[in-house]
């Protein structure tokens, strides 16, 4: 579903990603881990189409197409969803309006009719219960005045309503108390399907106690320093990131 080849990305002339290779198949969950500043979030943002980054080399194919030929909105309509690390507040725009506009943009793109108000509300209410969100938050401006946990749950709600093919979750677990973490993890786990791929970007292993990934990748200094199964995450939890970084620095020097 997603094929990243030798991806180099820089911001303000500074190279953040220095040759990423990653293949994610439908039905798989991949965890991308790494210390702060390793380029995890950059990878997530570039895949969603943020334009403040410069792709200097490499390619990304999504469902066989050149991802970089698509605008952010085209990517969204084609089924890519990014759960933001810092969900953005939009004063004056009701949460439920954004859900509806996003879903309709996607349905229209696929040649489907708009959902009528009754079906739409039923769909949203159903998902709302699953992520444990208060219905009142639907009618408040997007993310404005939401607690940290409410913002993260709101991202999961959007994801659940939009049912993406490729979901990228950027540190969705950060800053959550244990109840919110459980709710968010359940929401993500419920999204697992044979025709969907999920990329979990995370600093900590604790989210992976709830969602067991097919593969774990460790990013260090803009490269994937190590890949493995779920046991790699537990090793990181035990040993920290320093040994991977040291190894990466070693390879970097050798190259």
């Amino acid at each position: 579903m997603l094929e990243i080849t030798n991806l180099h990305v820089s911001v303000d002339g500074k190279e953040i990603l220095r040759g990423i290779d990653l293949v994610v198949q439908a039905g798989e969950v991949h965890a991308v881990m790494g210390p702060n500043g390793s380029g995890k979030s950059t990878l997530a943002q570039v895949l969603a189409g943020r334009d403040s980054y410069t792709v200097s080399a490499g390619s990304v194919r999504y469902d066989g197409r050149d991802l970089f030929a698509l605008s952010p909105e085209e990517r969204a309509r084609e089924g890519i969803f990014l759960a933001f690390q810092y969900p953005v507040e939009i004063p004056g725009v009701a949460n439920i309006y954004l859900l509806k506009a996003a879903l309709n943009a996607q349905r229209q793109h696929r040649g489907l009719p708009e959902l009528d108000a009754v079906d739409f509300l039923a769909l949203v209410r159903d998902q709302l219960k699953r992520v444990g969100m208060d219905e009142a938050l639907l009618y408040r401006p997007v993310n404005q005045g939401f607690s940290g946990g409410e913002k993260k749950r709101n991202e999961i709600l959007q994801m659940a309503v939009l049912q993406p093919k490729l979901a990228i979750l950027d540190e969705t677990d950060s800053g959550l108390d244990i109840d919110a973490l459980k709710a968010v993890a359940d929401g993500i786990e419920a999204m697992r399907r044979p025709d969907r791929a999920i990329i979990l970007v995370t600093h900590y292993q604790r989210l992976l106690d709830y969602i067991v990934p097919n593969q774990v990748h460790v990013l260090a200094q803009g490269r994937i320093a190590r890949s493995g199964g779920p046991e790699l995450a537990r090793e990181l939890e035990r040993r920290g990131y320093a040994w991977v970084e040291a190894a990466a620095a070693g390879t970097g020097a050798a190259a």
Partner: peptide, 9 residues
Amino acid sequence: FYLRSRGLA
């Protein structure tokens, strides 16, 4: 960017 990432032009 947030709105575009949700599919709005």
